[in-house]
Design a protein around this nucleic acid. Structure first.
Lengths: 154, 154
DNA sequence: CGAATAGGGTTGCATTATGAAACCAATTTG
DNA sequence: CAAATTGGTTTCATAATGCAACCCTATTCG
């Protein structure tokens, strides 16, 4: 039957996955972050079917992750550019990429090489930090959100 | 035709999405982080079909994100627990959750409430940082990885 | 100008994944 | 022992995916 949707889930991770949680959407966002803007370039770089790319781009536009901008003088040529909401996925993409590099390194050992434009130095691993800036593991935090509350009270 | 796979992609994000990039896997990891360990609990909390849950759990075990542990005395009762690789997805999940809370807040305004167990203080937003610990936006970094190299030299 | 090409998109169709429910075997619980 | 739990497989209808083939509108090339 229908793939389950999470539009009205009370879990924000589920709602987030509803927008960028399929195979292609996050890769499209990734390539947009690398500078890709044109339909044809997305298609060639990702090796994605055109109808699926159409579908994903329009959904990303609907969800305000991308916006569609006329690029040609007379219309009929467009660019898809990240919105602030889309750019805000930067930590997600970088964290996922670092995880992939760490646990599923490429055969050739190719790693993420993101550098501070100002200093040329590599960036740090993305981590969860407390209010003092100290890195925290999952064991160092407590969850006091709706899910936990539901489990305790229900 | 077949859903496209990225096992041997030279992009680590694609390889990462191959392991946790479907609708359910990351939600399973999320609930595992909240403490869920049993098949039935995952099923009830996620509202997932049993066959799909079987499939996802075994794939996550194959990919060493979870490990399957005998919980009953005589077998036939199991727990699925996060490995170090699985726990290492913590920043990804938290970043995604914060993004969801920021841009698609729940109708009731429910937010992520993760706190430092030691101090009780809320955690910081996950961000990308340079070697000095300063937060960086996507405009502050340069990408010097394989994809960019391929675009420059190709 | 006319033809070819490129960009963006839609349509058909075969293949695959998904979800609900039924069914199963082993193990607890009462 | 009977009934319920747990973890899992099977069956089947439906939805999503990928490929190829078209379509339409510019733009470029001869």
């Amino acid at each position: 039957m229908a793939r389950k949707r999470f539009d009205d889930s009370n879990c924000s991770v589920a709602r987030a996955l509803n927008e960028v949680g399929d195979w292609w959407s996050l890769l499209i966002v990734l390539h947009a972050m690398y500078g890709t803007r044109r339909f044809v370039d997305f298609q060639q770089q990702l090796g994605i079917a055109k109808n699926i790319l159409c579908d994903r781009l329009s959904k990303l536009v609907d969800n305000e992750v991308l916006r569609k901008v006329e690029a040609g003088e007379h219309g009929s040529r467009f660019e898809y550019r990240l919105t602030e909401k889309g750019r805000d996925l930067f930590p997600v993409v970088v964290a996922l990429r670092q995880w992939g590099d760490k646990w599923n390194p490429a055969p050739d050992g190719e790693q993420l090489d993101l550098r501070d434009r100002a200093t040329g130095q590599p960036i740090q691993p993305v981590s969860v930090r407390n209010s003092d800036g100290e890195p925290l593991t999952i064991r160092d935090v407590l969850v006091a959100d709706d899910l936990k509350a539901a489990k305790n009270t229900g």
